[in-house]
Design a protein around this nucleic acid. Structure first.
Lengths: 237, 237
DNA sequence: CGAGCGGTTGAGGGAACTCAAGCAGGGTGG
DNA sequence: CCACCCTGCTTGAGTTCCCTCAACCGCTCG
């Protein structure tokens, strides 16, 4: 199997039933891998559903467009994240996905997924779990944007990470985070301006909660960051 | 069939294969209907998945709780909306659903849904379509909270409605909306305070875009409302 | 070297929040 | 019947937070 397959959330949808340790060239044909350069699109607005993808390495951002053509970042995604599952059965799309760094994904044709759903009953659990997590995650973002102020949003972003830490140090002790996206992307995702993002980084640094070195962030005091997330409880009902 | 079944988004999951025009008492046993009083919970935080529900009449709000116990409204739902699909296969939940007015729902046990998935392949399309729409809707909310200011959020809420208009006048010409939730719920959903919601209603009324009579809102100028939603395009790139 | 991009910092103003008062409607009890 | 309270909603005054506009810094690349 490919080295990423051990952590694949959709193994039952994969054609890689055969070989551990196949040479890469062969694996590519079996796994239908696709490689993206930074800035390259995985899919674009308007394209009809055709496939879903599992990220095997790298990072992407997903965006939506409004009527005015303005871009809204709605997610960051790393290794083992599944993209495009919400596009199945929804014809029109104004969203797109862009690689933030060199990225490779496994393509799963929708036709194969649907076929497997009948032959492999365990696959439906995976699909519903993935979709359910995405809905739950979106509701969490709703809460963050509704209730928290800007520096709290950034602290939340650094801690639970919205995807970028997924592959790096989700629960591990490594306090060093590399953010593959630029400040403007973070600002769009968190509903603030890039200046406020920058100021919030500086504020957290001044409180000795993080160390900022460009896109590398060191979490000096994770529990202190977490303490910032609790809304001011005037009434602890 | 029940009168709601013509618009049911999950007909293949229903036991009502038999009878049009059955007496209500019989229908209830076939459809597993459940009736909720205003303020009553459909499900609560911590309950394990067991069923999904299709709203046949009435309205509900869905909420999430944060660590501090603070409530965040994440959705309003009306006739033909599906609830709970995201809870399947996700063990832990901090969310709940509350009826806003007298409400009835059709219960679909997860066990039956799963069984039908193997025998009725078309059911898959329905499930994926419903989950996909919920994800798309959540991303739209993300955009609204990120980009729009308060009176624009309220205009968006009135126009596309986040569910409450679903059963009433989604695309029909009826300009009269009844909002079953209180101002505080709207405020939570839209990420603002109830005072700001009230002020925004007054502002829209002052501009002759709506007429406010408590929870009844008359849309005097829908296209004018829609015009307010376009973000200020400083650069039309 | 200069231009361009990503990022940081500063000054000023405006939008929304907080605190507070007031109003309308519904229910209860004297 | 009216006094009274309670809840939901509106309106006002003052303040805070964040956005806007702008300058500046460091780096890369032509």
């Amino acid at each position: 199997m490919g080295e990423c397959c051990g952590s694949c959330p959709l193994p039952a949808a994969c054609d890689d039933t055969t070989g551990a340790g196949l040479p890469d060239a062969l694996l590519d044909s079996v796994l239908e891998q696709r490689v993206l350069d930074p800035g390259q699109a995985l899919y674009r607005a308007g394209q009809k559903r055709s496939s879903i993808w599992v990220i095997s390495a790298g990072a992407l951002k997903t965006c939506e467009l409004d009527i005015g053509g303005r871009e809204q970042v709605v997610g960051f995604h790393g290794k083992a994240d599944v993209l495009g599952i919400e596009r199945i059965e929804i014809p029109e799309h104004r969203g797109f996905a862009l690689a933030l760094e060199p990225t490779s994904v496994c393509r799963i044709p929708v036709s194969r997924l649907v076929a497997r759903l009948t032959t492999r009953p365990e696959l439906w659990r995976d699909v519903l779990r993935i979709a359910g997590r995405q809905i739950a995650q979106a509701r969490e973002v709703h809460r963050v944007l509704s209730q928290l102020q800007t520096s709290q949003r950034l602290a939340w972003f650094l801690l639970q990470g919205a995807g970028p830490r997924r592959g790096a140090c989700q629960c591990s002790g490594d306090p060093e985070i590399y953010l593959p996206m630029q400040r403007q992307d973070i600002a769009s995702y968190l509903g603030m301006t890039l200046e406020t993002v920058s100021r919030s980084f500086s504020a957290l640094q001044k409180e000795h909660l993080v160390e900022v070195h460009g896109r590398s962030i060191r979490l000096l005091d994770p529990s202190g960051l977490a303490a910032r997330l609790v809304p001011q409880e005037r009434d602890a009902a």
